[in-house]
C-alpha cells in the first residue's frame, strides 16, 4: 500500500481519459447560452499577463484588499450583488404569485408561486398526469436576462401519490425584474413493459466464451425499438445489455435508460424501469452490478443464479419515458 502512488492511479486511468474540450464547451454553452469562441492569445503574452497580474495580486494582499473592486484591476471582474434586504441568516424570501401552465404529452404542470431566497429559489406548483402515469423528475433553466448565465433547475416528485411539486434552483446573484422559466425534460413512468427469455444452455463455458451480439429486437414502445444486444458471461456473472433506439432523433417522447431498478421485494414494485429476472425454478435473480448510459444499460446477475437456471425470464416494467418539453413561461417578480 505504501508503494501505491499518484503515478499508479494515473496509469490506471490512462492519459487524459476523461476530460476533453467538450466539457469546456458544454460548460460555456450552459453559462452563456451561446457557443463561446476560444481566446486566441499567444501563450507568451499570457505568461506575461500572469506575471503582471500576480504582482498586482500580491500588492492587493499586502493592502488587505484582495477582493477586487471595479477599476482596481486591469481585467474586468463580474461582481456579485446581494441586495441589502436579504437577511443571510434568516433566509428571508420574496414570493411572487404566478399562474402559469406548461403542457406536455402525458400531463400538465401548473405553477402558482415563485419564491426567491438567499440560498435557493423555490417554485411551487401542481402536476396533473394521465391515469397510470407518474412523475420521476424534470429539469430546466431560469433565464434572468442580460448576459447572466442560465440557472439550472431540477425537480422530482418525492411523494408519487401527491400532485404537489417543488422546483428548486440556485439563488440569483441579483434580483431580476422578470424571469423566463424553461422546462426542458421530464421523466415519467407508466405501465408499459417488455420481457424476454435467456436460454442459459446457449451460454455454456463461462470465462472463455466471448461476448455475443444477439441484436435481437424485443419490442417497440413509444416509438423506441428495444434490442437485447448482448448476453454473455463475464467474470462477475451473467450479463445482458439492452439498447434503446428511438425512431427519430430528439423525438418528443422516447424510452429512457435511466433510473434502472432491480427487484428486491414488494417495496420495489412501483419503481420505474423495474427489472425482474426469474428462472425456471421460480427463483428471482440477485443483481451483482449494472451500468447505464444514454440509450443503453446492462445488468449482471450472480453466476450461481445463471448456472442453476435452464432459462431466465426477464421482465422490465414501469418503463420510464423521457419527455422533451422545451416550453417556457415568462413573468415579472415581486421586489418585496
Amino acid at each position: 500500500m505504501s508503494n501505491l502512488s499518484k503515478k499508479d492511479f494515473d496509469a490506471y486511468f490512462g492519459k487524459n481519459s476523461l476530460y476533453s474540450e467538450d466539457d469546456k464547451e458544454k460548460f460555456f454553452n450552459r453559462v452563456h447560452k451561446v457557443r463561446r469562441k476560444r481566446h486566441v492569445i499567444p501563450q507568451l503574452l499570457t505568461v506575461a499577463f500572469v506575471i503582471g497580474f500576480l504582482a498586482i495580486g500580491i500588492t492587493l494582499v499586502k493592502d488587505g484588499s484582495l477582493f477586487l473592486t471595479p477599476g482596481d484591476s486591469p481585467s474586468e471582474l463580474d461582481q456579485v450583488q446581494i441586495p441589502n434586504k436579504y437577511d443571510q441568516e434568516n433566509e428571508s424570501t420574496v414570493s411572487t404569485a404566478i399562474d402559469e401552465t406548461i403542457t406536455f404529452p402525458g400531463g400538465t404542470i401548473h405553477l402558482h408561486t415563485f419564491e426567491m431566497g438567499v440560498s435557493k429559489n423555490r417554485m411551487y406548483g401542481t402536476v396533473e398526469l394521465e391515469d397510470g402515469i407518474k412523475l420521476l423528475n424534470g429539469d430546466g433553466t431560469i433565464d434572468i436576462g442580460g448576459d447572466h448565465p442560465l440557472i439550472s433547475l431540477y425537480f422530482h416528485n418525492e411523494e408519487p401519490e401527491s400532485n404537489n411539486i417543488v422546483i428548486e434552483s440556485e439563488a440569483f446573484n441579483q434580483v431580476p425584474d422578470d424571469i423566463t422559466i424553461t422546462i426542458h425534460n421530464i421523466h415519467l413512468y407508466g405501465n408499459d413493459s417488455y420481457e424476454f427469455t435467456i436460454d442459459t444452455s446457449e451460454l455454456e463455458d463461462s470465462d472463455s466464451l466471448p461476448r455475443r451480439d444477439m441484436s435481437q429486437k424485443i419490442a417497440e414502445i413509444k416509438d423506441t425499438s428495444i434490442f437485447l444486444d448482448r448476453v454473455s458471461y463475464t467474470n462477475d456473472g451473467l450479463q445482458f445489455t439492452i439498447v434503446y433506439k428511438a425512431k427519430k432523433e430528439n423525438q418528443q417522447i422516447e424510452l429512457a435508460s435511466y433510473s434502472i431498478n432491480e427487484y428486491f421485494g414488494e417495496e420495489s414494485a412501483g419503481s420505474p424501469n423495474l427489472i425482474t429476472a426469474r428462472n425456471n425454478n421460480g427463483d428471482i435473480g440477485k443483481v451483482h452490478g449494472g451500468s447505464m448510459a444514454e440509450g443503453i444499460f446492462s445488468q449482471t446477475y450472480y453466476k450461481s443464479f445463471a448456472e442453476s437456471s435452464e432459462y431466465i425470464d426477464v421482465t422490465v416494467e414501469n418503463l420510464l419515458y423521457l419527455v422533451r418539453v422545451n416550453k417556457s413561461v415568462h413573468f415579472e417578480l415581486e421586489k418585496k
Partner: peptide, 20 residues
C-alpha cells in the same frame, strides 16, 4: 434518491479503460 443502490461494475460506452 435516483442513484442506483448496487455497485457499478462496468461501464458500457466511452469507458475508462485500463487495458491499453
Amino acid at each position: 434518491p435516483f442513484h442506483r443502490i448496487f455497485i457499478w461494475k462496468e461501464e458500457i460506452s466511452g469507458e475508462v479503460t485500463n487495458s491499453t
